[in-house]
């Protein structure tokens, strides 16, 4: 099959620039929409750039290519950064990002399968993506395919029990092709995750469920690439990569500010954010 699979030819620096580009898109699109979840989108931007421009085997011209790697955004509220990654890698024109959350747009407030090219599953209600990813990985196993299934979860959503049902299943069926990420930015709407409902010792929980656990700086492109490369080699056990991140990363006044979980920049803030992000490019 002829496929213009996204080449893994970007340098680390170029991937960092892509991450910054995704952040700019997130600020622009959510500001235009006047609603959305910029904080958790910014914390995931480095990972999303790595996945869509380097790690994943996929073809924006053929979103239903059967051998593609799959990605499930369990933390569906980070839709702006997923849409940015899809647009910038070629699934649809980046100009369309400005239609986010508007009537008639393909870019719904939370991801919808069948609505947006490249979106694999409908998410938005937290705690369900890992189960879906398990199903996708199981199908690959039944069919003897070697694609990988990636799933990005928020840390707060790990308070939901269904994740641990899925974690049990992934180990039980030895879904080595399943690679999960936890965006460990330590903030949820209520505030600090450890005050709302503590998750630590988080790595121990995953280890106890039989997963390979890798803990990295979620804003280090080199560490993300290395961890993904290591995870891809796992034959039997699923792997979770815990990304220590900063919510709102890249914009000084948004960093570690729980207010920007579900609140967007006002006009003046937007210009400041864009200025800061452009400086970083």
């Amino acid at each position: 099959m002829m496929c213009s699979v996204v080449a893994m030819s970007y340098t680390t620096e170029e991937l960092e620039e892509k991450a910054n580009l995704l952040r700019l898109d997130v600020i622009e699109a959510t500001s235009e929409a006047k609603s959305g979840h910029p904080g958790g989108s910014l914390s995931s931007a480095d990972l999303m750039a790595a996945l869509y421009f380097s790690v994943m085997k996929h073809d924006p011209a053929n979103p239903s290519w059967e051998d593609r790697d799959r990605f499930v955004l369990s933390k569906g509220h980070a839709a702006p950064v997923l849409y940015a990654a899809l647009a910038e890698s070629g699934y649809f024109p980046p100009e369309e990002l400005m239609t986010l959350r508007k009537m008639g747009s393909r870019l719904q407030g939370h991801p919808v399968r069948g609505k947006t090219p490249g979106v694999e599953m409908s998410t938005g209600s937290l705690g369900q993506g890992l189960s879906m990813a398990c199903g996708i990985a199981l199908a690959g196993k039944i069919d003897g395919k070697d694609y990988k299934t990636f799933c990005l979860m928020g840390d707060g959503e790990l308070q939901s029990g269904q994740n641990w049902e899925a974690a049990m299943l992934a180990h039980h069926y030895r879904l080595g092709s399943l690679i999960a990420f936890v965006d460990r930015n330590r903030l949820q709407i209520t505030g600090n995750t450890e005050c709302a409902m503590s998750l630590d010792p988080l790595p121990d929980k995953w280890k106890a469920f039989g997963w390979n656990v890798i803990i990295i700086d979620g804003h280090s492109m080199i560490q993300i690439l290395e961890a993904c490369s290591k995870a891809r080699q796992s034959e039997t056990n699923p792997t979770v990569i815990i990304l220590n991140t900063v919510k709102g990363k890249g914009v000084s006044f948004m960093e570690n500010n729980p207010e920007f979980h579900g609140k967007v920049c006002k006009a003046g803030e937007k210009n400041l954010a864009i200025k800061e992000l452009r400086c970083g490019m």
């Binding site: 499930v72 399968r113 694999e120 599953m121 369900q128 993506g129 890992l130 189960s131 879906m132 990813a133 398990c134 199903g135 996708i136 990985a137 199981l138 199908a139 690959g140 069919d143 029990g161 269904q162 049902e165 899925a166 049990m168 299943l169 039980h172």
Partner: peptide, 17 residues
């Protein structure tokens, strides 16, 4: 196993494939 919520999520992933 006794995990109906996970059963439905897993079913959806299989169906999507």
């Amino acid at each position: 196993g006794i995990a109906e919520q996970n059963m439905i999520g897993t079913a959806s992933g299989l169906a999507a494939s």
